[in-house]
C-alpha cells in the first residue's frame, strides 16, 4: 500500500485523487485503488476535520481520566477496556504504562455530564480500582495543529 498517499491524506482529507496522483507521482488509477483498499481494510478509519470549537463559543468539556484496573485472567486488560470504550462518551481509550492502566479521554456537554459518567458508569464497573479525573482547561495543540498563533513565515516576497 502506498504510504505516501496516506500521509498526504492524513494531513488533508480533502485532497482529490488527481491532486494526490500529481503530488505523489502515482497514476490516478493506483491512487483510487489504494484508497479503496485502505478503506476496505480499515487502514483508513475515517475522514475527520479538526475544529476549533472554542472560536464559536461552543464550550465542550473534555477530560482525561486515569483509570486503575485489575487485569482479568485470560483477557488481561482487554475485556474491561472494551466495556469502557463502548461508551459513546469515551472518545479515546489507551492502555498505558506507569501508575495507572487506562487513559480515557472523554468529551461531554458539561462538567456535570462528565462527573455523571465517571460516578455512574466508570467507577462502579467491576475491576475498576479507582479513577482520577483531569478536566482540560485549554487546548494548545490538537492533532499536530497549533490552535492559536500558528507560526507564519516572515519571508520577503522576492529574494535571490
Amino acid at each position: 500500500m502506498n504510504e505516501k498517499i496516506l500521509k498526504v491524506l492524513e494531513q488533508n482529507a480533502k485532497a482529490t485523487p488527481l491532486q494526490l496522483a500529481t503530488m505523489t507521482g502515482v497514476p490516478v488509477s493506483e491512487v483510487k485503488e489504494t484508497i479503496e483498499q485502505a478503506e476496505r481494510e480499515r487502514v483508513i478509519l475515517r475522514y475527520k476535520t479538526v475544529i476549533n470549537w472554542e472560536k464559536l463559543g461552543n464550550e465542550r468539556v473534555m477530560a482525561l481520566i486515569e483509570v486503575k484496573i485489575t487485569p482479568q485472567r485470560g483477557v488481561g486488560f482487554d475485556a474491561l477496556a472494551e466495556r469502557i470504550y463502548r461508551f459513546a462518551e469515551a472518545r479515546s481509550v489507551y492502555l498505558v504504562s506507569g501508575t495507572y492502566d487506562l487513559a480515557v479521554l472523554v468529551t461531554a456537554g458539561s462538567m456535570h455530564e462528565v462527573a455523571n459518567f465517571v460516578s455512574q458508569k466508570l467507577s462502579p464497573l467491576e475491576g475498576v480500582q479507582g479513577t482520577v479525573t483531569h478536566f482540560l482547561l485549554k487546548r494548545y495543540k490538537e492533532d499536530g495543529e497549533i490552535l492559536d498563533g500558528k507560526e507564519e513565515s516572515h519571508r520577503l516576497a522576492v529574494a535571490p
Partner: peptide
C-alpha cells in the same frame, strides 16, 4: 521588490527560501 510592495493580494513565487520556519 519595490513594485510588489505597492500591491495587495499578491501570491509570491518569487522567493528564494523555504516557507518552513
Amino acid at each position: 521588490f519595490d513594485l510588489l510592495a505597492s500591491l495587495e493580494g499578491v501570491i509570491s513565487l518569487g522567493v528564494g527560501e523555504p516557507d518552513f520556519v
